[in-house]
Amino acid sequence: MGILGWIVLGLIAGAIAKAIKPGEQGGGWFTTLLLGVVGAIVGGWIGSALFNVGVNQFWSLSTWILAIGGSLIVLVMWGLLTRKRA
């Protein structure tokens, strides 16, 4: 999968991750979509390291599950880093 495929996958995975975990992570939709691209890369890395499953094909179910899972992880981490302390 090329770089354009990674970007599209990450943008969609970020939007799905935001729909799964709504809340105040800070940064708005643009930041969430960028975090989705990073999350797709993280999900692909975790999948290949732990499960020997890569993110090679755009239309593969495992690719989408790893990308969305990685996006959720990155979104939660971003929320922890940017939350306001009372």
Rank of each mutant, 00 (worst) to 15 (best):
M1T: 11
M1E: 09
M1A: 14
G2E: 02
G2Q: 06
G2V: 07
G2A: 12
L4I: 15
G5S: 13
G5A: 11
G5N: 07
W6R: 10
I7V: 14
I7E: 09
I7G: 08
I7N: 08
L9Q: 11
L9Y: 08
L9I: 15
L9R: 04
G10H: 04
L11F: 11
L11S: 15
L11N: 10
I12V: 15
A13T: 11
A13W: 05
A13D: 11
G14K: 04
G14Y: 09
G14V: 07
G14M: 13
G14C: 06
I16E: 05
I16M: 07
A17D: 03
K18R: 14
K18W: 08
K18T: 11
K18C: 10
K18P: 00
A19Q: 09
A19T: 07
I20G: 02
K21Q: 08
K21M: 00
K21W: 08
K21D: 09
G23K: 01
G23V: 05
G23R: 01
E24N: 10
E24V: 04
E24G: 04
E24P: 03
G26N: 04
G26A: 06
G27I: 11
W29N: 11
W29E: 08
W29D: 06
T31V: 13
T31P: 01
T31N: 12
T31W: 08
T31Y: 06
T32E: 13
T32Q: 12
L33R: 03
L34M: 15
L35A: 04
G36W: 02
V37A: 14
V37C: 11
V37M: 10
G39F: 06
G39H: 04
G39T: 08
A40R: 06
A40I: 08
I41T: 14
V42F: 11
G43K: 02
G44A: 11
G44N: 07
I46W: 07
I46E: 04
I46M: 11
G47W: 01
G47D: 01
S48F: 12
S48I: 06
S48C: 03
L50Q: 13
L50V: 13
L50A: 14
F51K: 08
N52C: 14
N52V: 14
N52D: 15
N52P: 10
V53L: 15
V53C: 07
G54L: 13
G54K: 14
G54R: 13
Q57Y: 15
Q57N: 15
F58E: 03
W59R: 12
S60Q: 12
S60T: 12
L61N: 05
L61S: 06
T63G: 05
T63S: 09
W64K: 02
A67R: 03
A67Y: 02
I68Q: 01
I68F: 05
I68D: 02
G69T: 11
G69C: 04
G70V: 09
G70L: 06
G70W: 03
S71L: 09
S71G: 12
L72D: 05
L72A: 05
L72H: 02
V74A: 11
V74C: 06
V74Q: 03
V74P: 01
M77A: 10
W78A: 12
G79A: 00
G79M: 01
G79R: 03
L80C: 00
L81C: 03
T82Q: 10
R83E: 13
R83H: 10
R83K: 14
R83Q: 09
R83A: 07
K84C: 06
K84P: 00
K84N: 13
K84W: 05
K84R: 14
R85W: 09
R85P: 05
R85C: 07
A86D: 07
